[in-house]
Design a binder for these strands. Structure first.
Length: 887
RNA sequence: GGGCGGUUAGCUCAGCUGGUUCAGAGCACCUGCCUUACAAGCAGGGGGUCACUGGUUCGAAUCCAGUACCGCCCACCA
């Protein structure tokens, strides 16, 4: 790189360096004597493509991992993908459907062949995309949750918990889609307010022999077609209106089956009639009441949504047809009291838009009690910290109310549950079919392999991803508490930080903590940083259907990965949603260009080894060294609190404002006859040193441009990279230099203000009189404000403008006449403000209760304010007097 | 309905255990500049009753209570 273009072009640079890093194995980590710093990627769906949420998440991960690497740690970022059973299976189902094939037609094995094909074709695209973003993952360690070793870990874990007695088979209501003939997850159910009717039905009290008396009660229902499945009528035990029903039995209309009246707190007294018909087989809540009162469960609706023979009447009718017909029958039988219009939320299947039918089915569960307790303790004890902390509340609430985890899914894509059924319906749970056969033969020696039938269901995807921080290093460990962890696991576990979204705090984060505690005896990570959701400019969630999500690869193509990375991070604080606006990326691109051009300037400096250092340069160097050090300390502090965007903004301002606008302008050599004068060697060396420090500071966020410039700024050894250069240290403490320069820069700003107001060109040199015996950084002021500075005892006489820099009076001498009226008005306004301010301060100081109660430092400060404003008032008054005289 | 969080400049946010001249930052905006690194730039500037109402305090953006609105999670009432 010799001549630098005036504009930074990211494209060429980024591909070049990513390939170089890979070729030099810069991302690969092996256990060594250094301190490890580990992150496991939140595995994206294997067939997913990169969206803005991934960009945010993985940029944060990459910033943390690159920072750790430069801090001298052995940084390891393990990448990989998740098999995502539901998402992937439904994609494959859709693809087959387009070809007119249903998964039932081709069967399990054939379907899985298609699914693996799909995975081979689409899987890993997202990992390729992460490379474009600059992610420094250890690609040699790439894992997939359904690869053989990790699947084995999942199966072993299941067997382990089963043998421990924590996994059991139970019955649970699932969301049944009668059109697709499958259970769907809660996420796939859409609740829509739906107009229907509230049918008030009369149930007669039984005389004890199955004959109706003339007494009755009234229930209200939206589903009269289910009355044949009623198991009881339930009232609230506190409801006085229904005391007389205690112990009574009632008759189901039309079929005259006798059912009891029971009492349960669940029933709301002021809703409907206060009487609830309990239908355990077809309603979630009713099922729970049924459990509490040991009610029989009678299923009268089949998988297709039609009434079956257990309904006794209307057999074979569709549930909605049955509803219409039964209403008529009830009316004719005299059981219908009235019909009200009613709107209530009804669940619809996302895939078929069919009304969801709650259906009982056998599922596998993992007991949460002990695991949840352990996982709560991990966070409450602070062994794992949440950032921001507010998520602890949510977490605690969940952990304290954790229900057993339903781990079975009625899908094929995933780890198949290792339960093997014997012909008699009993079952054994073993890691392999062979082991299952042995176990089965121990029960019944005549069992043969073909007699065993493996459970059809697969395990919830989270049942594999909760092992991720363990299994990526040592897949043998989960399910084998006695297994001695291998070298990798011992070294890298526990990992350090996890970056993820708060939406999966329970699904994933909590469960990884459970698995970590159970199998490793300790937390899987020290910190969890929760990002927000990436939204569009006007706050809508990004979604494919809205089309408001940009393709990150297009953005990288247009602006460069560095620009996309810093653009995303500048406005993202932990836990807050990100309102994405392309303007942010443009800001990032502008920053790249600024860095680029500052280097063009620096690179162009020539050096004269015998030249003396200019006073302004000497001051600027001393100041910037101190400023850099202070800023490094501040940045470290931000990082330590995971205030990433603050850390970046701090570096951004240091680079742009302090280094470019102040430092470089202060040391910039003069031009003589159109030729830039050479710099002295001290200034030149310091300038390069500072530039390199800045590159290193910003490298974790902007890896490409920093590598490009870092390689050019000095001769590098073969294979040397900024990736392993060390983070700048805060090793210069010089508050005097910082304070002095700050005061000087205020003076410069004041003079510039005068110029701007009066339209005086920056090129016209002015005289600045300063009423003081000394002032800091005079050469810097003279250079940057383009003034000749004179220290004087008294001011006045010439034409010009007076300015105040804190408590120092200054005067800019002007050749043109000044508008006295304007000056006067401004001075009077300032005076008024100063007097009000003084009055406020004095009111405070004269308040005995203030002086008695406030700490000494605060009072001292008020006294300083008083003195400062007094001196300010004094000089303003003098100025006003003088202005009035000159009128 | 239950729980949690929020409300500070046009936008996105910072402001830690009340007290630095506390009302801030970035972007956007306005004005003037194509000044030998950068117009993706330089210099200057305007802009907020800190949601509302009360309380605690010598002192409140900051602590407390209530109200309004917004967001998220859970349950979505037969």
């Amino acid at each position: 790189m010799n001549e630098l273009a005036a504009k930074y072009s990211a494209k060429e640079v980024e591909d070049k360096w990513y390939a170089w890093w890979l070729a030099h194995k810069c991302f690969h980590s092996e256990p060594n004597e250094k301190q490890p710093y580990t992150i496991v990627i939140p595995p994206p769906n294997v067939t997913g493509i990169l969206h803005m949420g991934h960009v945010l998440n993985n940029t944060l991960n990459d910033v943390l991992i690159r920072k750790a690497r430069m801090d001298g740690k052995n940084a390891c970022w393990v990448p990989g993908t998740d098999h995502a059973s539901i998402a992937t299976e439904s994609k494959v189902v859709a693809k087959l459907k387009a070809q007119g094939i249903s998964k039932e037609d081709i069967g399990r094995e054939e379907f899985l062949r298609h699914a693996w094909e799909w995975k081979e074709e689409h899987g890993g695209i997202i990992l390729e995309q992460l490379r474009k973003l600059g992610c420094s993952c250890d690609w040699d360690r790439t894992r997939f949750t359904m690869e053989p070793e990790l699947s084995e870990a999942v199966i072993n874990t299941f067997v382990y918990f089963y043998k421990k007695g924590w996994i059991y088979k139970g019955v649970r209501m699932v969301n049944w889609d009668p059109v697709a003939l499958t259970a769907v997850s809660d996420d796939e159910v859409i609740h829509k307010d739906t107009k229907s009717h509230f049918y008030h039905l009369r149930y007669f009290i039984s005389d004890g022999n199955g004959k109706p008396t003339d007494k009755f009660l009234v229930i209200a229902t939206t589903r009269p077609e289910t009355i044949m499945a009623d198991a009881a009528i339930c009232v609230n035990p506190k409801d006085e209106r229904h005391f007389w029903l205690k112990g009574k039995k009632v008759l189901i209309p039309l079929i005259n089956r006798e059912i009891p009246v029971i009492e349960d707190d669940y029933v709301e007294m002021d809703f409907g009639t206060g009487c609830l018909k309990v239908t355990p087989a077809h309603d979630v809540h009713d099922y729970e009441i049924g459990l509490r009162h040991s009610l029989p469960v009678l299923e009268i609706i089949d998988d297709h949504g039609k009434l079956n023979e257990k309904a006794e009447i209307l057999v074979g009718e569709d549930r909605f047809v049955a509803r219409k017909k039964i209403v008529k029958m009830l009316e004719e039988a005299g059981n219908l009291v009235k019909v009200e219009d009613y709107t209530s939320p009804v669940g619809y299947s996302e895939r078929t838009d069919a009304v969801i039918e709650p259906k009982l089915s056998a599922q596998w569960f993992l007991k949460m009690e002990t695991l949840a307790k352990m996982a709560l303790e991990t966070v409450e004890s602070g062994r794992t910290k949440f950032i921001p902390e507010k998520y602890m509340n949510t977490y605690r609430h969940w952990m304290e109310n954790a229900r057993d985890w339903c781990i079975s899914r009625q899908l094929w894509w995933g780890q198949r549950i290792p339960a093997y059924y014997l012909p008699d319906g009993s079952y054994v749970v073993e890691p392999t079919a062979e082991a299952a056969l042995k176990a089965a033969q121990a029960i019944n020696p005549s069992i043969k392999a073909e007699d065993l039938r493996q459970d059809e269901d697969v395990l919830d995807t989270w049942f594999s991803s909760w092992l991720w921080p363990i299994s990526v290093f040592d897949p043998q460990k989960p399910g084998h508490p006695d297994h001695r962890p291998n070298k990798d696991l011992s070294y890298y576990y526990p990992t350090n930080d996890l970056v993820t979204g708060p939406d999966i705090i329970f699904f994933w984060v909590a469960r990884m903590i459970m698995a970590g505690e159970e199998f490793m005896g300790r937390e899987p990570f020290s910190n969890v940083y929760f990002t927000g959701i990436v939204r569009d400019k006007i706050g809508r969630k990004m979604s494919k259907t809205l089309g408001n999500s940009p393709n990150p690869l297009d953005l990288i193509q247009t602006y460069g990965a560095d620009a996309v990375r810093i653009g995303m991070l500048l406005c993202s604080s932990a836990g807050n949603d990100i309102f994405y606006d392309e303007a942010q990326i443009k800001q990032g691109a502008a920053f790249c260009n600024k860095i680029w051009n500052s280097y063009r300037l620096v690179k162009g400096f020539s050096v004269d080894p015998s030249a003396k250092q200019a006073p302004a340069a000497a001051e600027a160097v001393e100041w910037f060294r101190a400023k850099l050090s202070d800023t490094v300390a501040l940045v470290e502090d931000h990082y330590s609190k995971f205030r990433i965007s603050d850390a970046l903004m701090t570096i951004y301002k240091l680079f742009w404002d302090d280094y470019c606008s102040w430092y470089l302008e202060a040391i910039k050599p003069a031009f003589v006859d159109g030729v830039a004068q050479p710099l002295d060697k001290d200034t030149h060396a310091a300038t390069l040193e500072f530039f390199e420090a800045l590159l290193k500071l910003i490298h974790p966020v902007m890896p490409f441009i920093t590598e490009e410039l870092w390689q050019d700024i000095a001769e590098r050894r073969e294979g040397e990279t900024i990736m392993f250069a060390s983070t700048p240290k805060a090793d210069c403490n010089n508050p005097g230099a910082i304070a002095g320069f700050a005061l000087a820069s205020e003076a410069v700003n004041a003079v510039r203000g005068v110029r701007s107001q009066r339209n005086i060109s920056p090129r016209e040199q002015l005289v600045l009189k300063v009423k003081a015996s000394d002032f800091p950084c005079i050469p810097v002021i003279e250079k940057l404000a383009n003034v000749k500075l004179e220290l004087v005892n008294t001011l006045g006489g010439e034409q010009g403008v007076g300015i105040m820099v804190r408590t120092t009076e200054m005067f800019v001498v002007l050749s043109s006449s000044v508008n006295v009226e304007e000056e006067l008005a401004k001075a009077e306004k300032d005076l008024e403000y100063a007097q009000k301010f003084l009055a406020g301060v004095r009111a405070k100081l004269s308040n005995e209760r203030f002086t008695a109660n406030a700490p000494a430092a605060v009072i001292e400060n008020e006294r300083k304010k008083e003195a400062d404003s007094l001196s300010k008032i004094e000089s303003l008054e003098a100025k006003i007097k003088q202005l009035k005289n000159s009128k």
